[in-house]
Simulated assay, not measured.
Amino acid sequence: MLLVEDDPNDVLMASLAFEVTGFDSEVAIVNNGRDALDFLHRSGRHAHWPEGVPQLILTDLNMPQMDGLELLKTIKEDDRLAEIPVVVLTTSTAERDREACALLGANDYLVKPHNFEDFVLLIDTLTTRWLQTDSLAM
């Protein structure tokens, strides 16, 4: 799984939620869309990662250098990456953001919960819905 998130508190909350839910597969974490593309193409500081693509990408919308919308657009236009499910996990409740993500091919759009217990439930639901735990790639 690839988590694209620039807020250190949200990264920590997600990491703890993965731990609490028993999700034990590898999660790569990057802090903006440009770094995510480097990871997906195994370039720059991510050249050492084994080949392959994650089974799921969780991305925030509002990030520096390259935001989630531009990342989503780039992924869905790339034949090699287009089939990877991309779930937007954001604080934005704006309908225009939800619609833009849908138009660009997001597989789901979820608003980040404010408390940890709800965040754990959300992560558990995401991993159950989008990942096949017996055959994870990465």
Rank of each mutant, 00 (worst) to 15 (best):
V53S: 11
Y109R: 02
M63L: 11
I29C: 13
L131R: 04
T125Q: 12
D134A: 09
I75A: 07
D24Y: 00
F116C: 01
L71C: 10
P64K: 14
A17I: 09
A100Q: 10
E95F: 00
L121G: 08
N62F: 10
P50T: 04
I75M: 09
M63G: 10
A14Y: 10
G105K: 07
L72S: 09
Q55R: 09
L104R: 13
L89P: 00
V20E: 15
H48E: 14
P50M: 04
E5S: 03
M1N: 01
I123A: 02
T91A: 12
V111H: 05
E5I: 05
N107V: 02
N9S: 10
T21I: 14
T59P: 07
A82P: 00
E83Y: 03
D67C: 05
A102H: 11
D97M: 02
L3S: 00
V27I: 15
A14H: 12
S135I: 08
Q65W: 10
Y109G: 01
M63I: 12
A100E: 11
N115H: 12
P8H: 06
D124Q: 14
A137Q: 13
T128V: 04
A106L: 05
L104C: 03
V53H: 13
H41D: 11
T74W: 03
M13L: 15
R98L: 12
D108L: 01
T21E: 14
S25M: 07
D35I: 00
N31A: 07
L69N: 14
D78K: 08
E77H: 12
V111C: 08
D134V: 07
L122E: 08
L58R: 02
D118I: 00
D35T: 05
F23T: 05
D35M: 12
K76F: 08
L126W: 02
L121M: 04
D67M: 07
K112L: 07
M66R: 08
F116T: 01
M63V: 11
P64M: 06
T74D: 09
D60F: 03
A100S: 15
H48M: 08
K76T: 06
T93S: 15
D108C: 04
L2S: 03
M138A: 07
E83T: 10
E5H: 04
R129G: 00
T133W: 13
M1Y: 04
M1D: 00
E117G: 01
G44L: 09
R80N: 13
D134F: 10
L58N: 02
F39R: 11
D60R: 02
N62H: 14
F119N: 01
I75Y: 07
L56S: 06
D78T: 11
A14P: 00
G22T: 07
N62I: 09
D10T: 04
N115M: 06
V20Y: 06
H46W: 15
N62P: 01
F39D: 03
R80D: 14
S25G: 15
T93D: 14
D78V: 07
R129D: 02
L131Q: 05
D60M: 04
L37G: 02
Q65F: 13
T74H: 09
D24I: 01
V20W: 00
A47N: 06
D79V: 10
K112S: 05
V11W: 00
L81C: 12
K73Q: 13
H48K: 12
T128K: 14
N32C: 13
H114F: 03
A94D: 15
R129K: 13
R98E: 13
P8Q: 06
